[in-house]
Amino acid sequence: MSALPLPVALADVLARGDVWRGDTLASLPEAAISSGHTELDAELPGGGWPCGCLTELLVDRSSIGEMSLLLPALGRLSGEGGWLALVAPPWVPHAPAWIAAGVALERLVIVRAGQDVAWSTEQLLACGGFSGVLAWPGEGVSAKALRRLQVAAEGRPTLACLWRPAQVADAPSPAPLRLALSADDSRLSVRVLKRRGRPPSRTVHLPFFASIPRPGRENRVVAGPTLSLVADRGLAATPVA
C-alpha cells in the first residue's frame, strides 16, 4: 500500500460541478436554460435557469409579473417537444395566453393535487419525462418534503420551480437557488437569496416583458373609467323595428 496520495491536479478538482471558487459562480453539471434575459442570466449559476435542481421563487403578492420570468424558458422547452406540468396552480390557466407564450397546450399538464402537492411534484420530477415542473405547494410544505423534492430533482433534465410566499425567505431550504421577486412602478426586481458560488450582491431590475401588457405604445394610460354604463340588457335585446 502506498502512503502517497494520488496526484490530483488542482484544476481537475476545480472543474468539478460541485466545487466552486468563492469569487465566481458555480458551473452546473446539468444544462441551464437561458431565462431570455441577459441581465438575469449573468446572476444565475450556469447562465440560466438550472435543470436538475430545485429552484424556489418567493413572491409576496402574486400577479406582479412573476411568470414572465419563466415564460420564455417554458416556451422554448415546450417548443422542443418537452412536457410541462403545473401542480396545484392557484388559478385556472387561460389557454389563449399560454399559446401566445409558445407553450404547446397538449403537453401542458395541469394537476389539481389537493393535499398531495408534494407527492405529485415528486412523482413528476422523478419520472424523468417532464422538461418543466412548476408547483405551488402553499404554506404547509414541510422541510422534509422539500428535501425529498430536491433529491427527486437532482440530476434530472427537468426545470423544477416551486412558488412560495416571501415569508419563508428566512427559513432554511434545501433548494440550491432561491430568488425573491417584487415589483415597483416600472420594473420587476429579482433578489438572489441563495445560489451556488459567489454570494449574491445586487438586485436585478428587469422591465416587464412577455405576458405583461406595457402601458405606452399601444396601451394608453387612461385617467379613469371612460365607460358609459352598459345599456340595459332588456332594452338591447329588443329588436329594432
Binding site: 390557466p93 389557454a95 399560454w98 399559446i99 397538449e106 401542458l108 399538464v109 395541469i110 389537493g114
Partner: peptide, 9 residues
C-alpha cells in the same frame, strides 16, 4: 379529472 390538459376553444 384532477390530471388534465387544456385545449383552446
Amino acid at each position: 379529472e384532477a390530471v388534465q390538459v387544456l385545449l383552446p376553444v
